[in-house]
Amino acid sequence: MAHVNAHAGSAGKAGVAHEAGHGHHDLESLRLMGFWIFLMTDVIIFATLFATYIVLRNGTAGGPTASELFEMPGVVAETFILLTSSFTGGLAVLSMNQGSRKGLIGWLAVTALLGASFIGLEISEFVKMVHEGATIGTSAFLSGFFTLVGTHGVHVSIGLVWMVALMIQLGRRGITPVTRRKVNVISLYWHFLDVVWIFVFTIVYLLGVM
């Protein structure tokens, strides 16, 4: 259905203004590329935060060290939850390409729920650390830790709000060339956050407890 709809976007206009239809499509793919370039700038933000964390990670100033502080079961759960949400985000795009609006919104909802449980686990982890006296001001190691992991968490939280807004818009407008591009954009964003988390998981947590 929506597939027909999406094509109506370019094919329907064909009689009147074929050129305009094409221009519209090119604009959407240009926007997708613009978002990709934004992601590359985000790569640079995370590069600086990772570099800071790595050089400061032994500066514990008498406070808790990584291996004393990190509790792996929660972190492993977060990792598998985020990996699964990256997959379900992919299934959402797949549903969209098959023209199923229900499938698209449904998989986006599953993805958002998984993302929310990731954030819930992360917040409870942070709260527990702060209660144990490990705050952002305790040591250079913890400043680097909370800044890096917190920045990732903020990204995921923004993604959640964005995803809910997009689901509402999809409910109203259906799958059009514009909402199609928006789904592609948020899917890229979500997979990107999963990649960042893999490096957080490896460099911060696994190397921390090793």
Partner: peptide, 13 residues
């Protein structure tokens, strides 16, 4: 992006 990333991380270390 990856070149910048490696420069920042490896250079800092």
């Amino acid at each position: 992006g990856i070149i910048i990333l490696i420069t920042i991380v490896a250079g800092s270390i």
